[in-house]
């Protein structure tokens, strides 16, 4: 093993930049495909950057994008060539080490979160997400799941919505009316 390599030797999944994922002398399942994808995407972006202003001037808005996408293409190409030469890791498979069911499931959950956020509103969507996710991961009873997820959602909502007045999509919950009601209640009590 390369003495410089300080990757995560247990899981090879990149805990941080300082301990990057992957192997020093082997390629992981899907690594080549990912590198090829990056190369293709970089080529497309280079073409798109050329479309901004062509080679009009050194100061054109397309100059830096073109330079940077060109750097992407070159580095992606080197990565592809190097990765292709490496032997595959025999002990790993995409389904077990890169994209196990759990990760795919959470990908789908997050996608659902994103899609429902606007039509359904933040509170119901987030509650749904937390309940499903915590129930699935912890495997504990409904009492625990509901208490933990709704409790923490309430805390987060109070911090962001009330203290920081971040207006999350209200969706089907008339948040603003409810808040006004509480405000009136508060004012009424004070008078």
């Amino acid at each position: 093993m390369d003495p410089d390599f300080r990757g995560d030797s247990d899981h090879h999944d990149g805990t941080s930049d300082a301990t990057p994922g992957g192997y020093a002398g082997q390629r992981r399942p899907g690594e080549l495909a990912f590198a090829l994808f990056l190369l293709a995407a970089s080529l497309y972006l280079l073409w798109d950057a050329y479309g901004i202003a062509g080679f009009e001037a050194l100061s054109s808005p397309g100059a830096v994008p073109m330079a940077t996408t060109a750097a992407m293409v070159i580095s992606a190409l080197i990565v592809v060539l190097r990765t292709a030469r490496l032997p595959k890791v025999a002990t790993e498979s995409v389904a077990r080490d890169i994209l196990p069911l759990k990760v795919i499931l959470f990908g789908v959950l997050l996608l659902g979160f994103g899609l429902l956020l606007v039509p359904l509103g933040f509170l119901p969507t987030a509650a749904l997400f937390l309940v499903v996710a915590i129930k699935y991961l912890s495997g504990r009873g409904w009492g625990f799941t509901l208490a933990v997820s709704l409790g923490s959602l309430l805390v987060i909502w109070v911090i962001f919505r009330i203290v920081f007045t971040v207006l999350m999509p209200a969706g089907i919950v008339p948040e603003a009316e409810l808040l006004q009601f509480f405000r009136n209640l508060g004012n009424g009590g004070a008078e």
Binding site: P174, E177, L185
Partner: peptide
């Protein structure tokens, strides 16, 4: 009651 009327108002 207030919460309910708030909901109605919102709707």
């Amino acid at each position: 009651l207030g919460a309910a009327s708030a909901l109605v108002l919102g709707a």
